[in-house]
Design a protein around this nucleic acid. Sequence first.
DNA 1: TGACATTGCGTACGTCTGTACTTAAAACGG
DNA 2: CCGTTTTAAGTACAGACGTACGCAATGTCA
Lengths: 130, 130
Amino acid sequence: MNQRPALSKGELEVARAIWKLGSATVGQAFEAIPEDRRPDYSTVQTYIRRLETKGYLRARRTGRTKVYAPKIRPSQVIRETVDDFMHRLFDGEALPLMRHLINDRGITADEISAIRELLTEHEVEQDDEH
Amino acid sequence: MNQRPALSKGELEVARAIWKLGSATVGQAFEAIPEDRRPDYSTVQTYIRRLETKGYLRARRTGRTKVYAPKIRPSQVIRETVDDFMHRLFDGEALPLMRHLINDRGITADEISAIRELLTEHEVEQDDEH
DNA sequence: TGACATTGCGTACGTCTGTACTTAAAACGG
DNA sequence: CCGTTTTAAGTACAGACGTACGCAATGTCA
């Protein structure tokens, strides 16, 4: 159905900035990127242009400036991106990824409880969802 | 310290094939890739060559053929790859990724129990640890 | 109103990546 | 021993990507 071309690293960075802001001009997106890994203004411009071409962003004109906003719901893009990643590294299965997150990297006790809560909350919601 | 160039999609596929086999010739790696997404033999050859250049694989000659084996431990590559991914999409935090896996995609009841077990097992191991 | 800042838009360019062909030498099967 | 198969090694080439410059037009503040 869909399948716009995947996001590249740089594109993802600015897309996320815009998602966080809801909508933004190039300048605003530029400012929103953490200084340490912020590229040149014109580079951000290029990424945004490509994001529009790829169908991830929609631009609305306000006078002379353009305001960019998501064309695809961020949540969907995230899902697709995680999916793709899981396929490439874990044969598309969530569990091995979970296992990796739990075992193969320092997970704190706090995180463990947090995960337990997430699981329980999720179950409850499932039930509610009559 | 390190930072060999990152793995590309295609490179990762064959790297994983070789990891699974422990070590392999080009031909064996080629065969090990699921037929539906298996590229041309020579493409696999190219990926392997690049993997060697990038420092992921080491080749040992046996007569005329070369046998490739990991130069970097797969577990480490996986950790780095997941890390990079988590940084790009979840600001480097594991919990949001977990939340995503649990909430934003269809997780089954079985998977939920499996995760609970993983958590418990992990805790036990932590305690046992000396 | 003139200088400076902001933005849009086009262009550029080297590297990385996907994808593969070719050539040649060694190995194997009969 | 010869044809067939396997492998190595080199080369190619288009498209994606990171990265940015330059120019023109508009907006802004002193």
